[in-house]
Design a protein around this nucleic acid. Structure first.
Lengths: 204, 204
DNA sequence: CCTACCGATCGGTAGG
DNA sequence: CCTACCGATCGGTAGG
């Protein structure tokens, strides 16, 4: 019970920090602002986080972990390379769009993270790039994709996906699912596997 | 002569600010830092710029203008849609890589710009997206490209290009020209015009 | 082009 | 005695 309350309070603090850091930037937001938005005072935050930088890490790290998780699940699922790439790109795009504010904060405020938090996150990111490059290389080996350089392709693809946080509007004309689909189409085009049937059933 | 000196001093101030803002972030850099790096004191900077935010705008705006210029030149040059798309993607990627620090500063510190500077730059960016979407739509109309939504394709493509500032290393294994070429290949794949001969000479 | 200085505001912590 | 929190204020630094 006490632990549940603690966890709830930590979540509420992070949620309010996300909102304010996203709107005003990290240095443009004071811990007093975050506390005021919660109806408490600043020392309350210090009971749950050691400082402003730890709050930033608590916003960024779980979000990067989710992206890597979405990628890993798709890469390790059964299917052809094209099917798994489609699943991977759609899944990661979905995480980026669901956590748009957290992603924006991470890319904008990367430099403000403590060195150890930065190191942990950079390890996750390298794992992301390696796994995506691995899937692409697998498709090339299977003759399903045609790319010169799987590592560069993975970086370009990762950029295309990440960047959606800058322009997708939640209430715009394009739904999250429609955009995930578009991104998957683009990815298949990039690797030279243009639009195979998502479920490739051989004729009866 | 006096004007040349003034222009030189303004350039030196901006160059040093680029270096420091890139390394330490905008709020992490003081105007005293910039002045010290130049071997002068802070009031010197105020002789040439009205404040820290104007210095930031002087870094960002010309760089976004260069990107738009590179795109416009390629779009308006002669050639097939595929040739012009190749030129556009290569040209814009080249600007991004040549101005890596300025691009990084812009995307990280966007929120710190004065509203009017932000407005001017946003107008340029909308022009960029519109022109790129226009070229893609032209290719679709000519039957050279196959995409559902030229506007979304332009945004995805723009993201893939912009993002290179985060991962390209000037002294890494991939030269600027090689990367520009890769990006152009990816772009043609995305629009469903996979790898046409760059110079399409009909057989003699 | 500098020395000298301001108004304000910040992140973090004391005592109770 | 503790945990959880508040009112007040600290040292240090920012832009100008």
């Amino acid at each position: 019970m006490r632990e549940e309350l603690q966890a709830l309070k930590r979540e509420r603090i992070v949620a309010e920090a996300v909102r304010l850091f996203y709107e005003r930037g990290y240095t443009g937001t004071t811990l007093d602002d975050v506390a005021a938005a919660l109806g408490v005072t600043k020392p309350f935050i210090y009971t749950y986080y050691s400082g402003k930088a730890e709050l930033l890490a608590a916003i960024c790290q779980p979000t990067i972990e989710l992206s890597l998780l979405a990628l890993t699940e798709a890469v390790e699922s059964p299917g052809t390379p094209a099917e798994r790439l489609r699943g991977a790109v759609g899944g990661v795009t979905r995480v980026v769009l669901e956590r748009q504010a957290q992603i924006a904060i991470f890319f904008r405020e990367e430099k403000q993270l403590a060195p150890d938090a930065m190191d942990r996150i950079n390890t996750l990111r390298r794992g992301f790039d390696r796994r995506l490059a691995g899937l692409i290389a697998e498709g090339v080996a299977a003759g399903a994709f045609a790319v010169d350089d799987p590592a560069v392709t993975a970086l370009a693809l990762g950029g295309m996906i990440s960047w959606t946080y800058t322009w997708h509007r939640t209430h715009g004309r394009l739904s999250v699912e429609a955009l995930c689909d578009h991104m998957a189409d683009f990815a298949l085009g990039m690797v030279g596997a243009r639009l195979p049937a998502p479920v490739a059933v051989a004729a009866e």
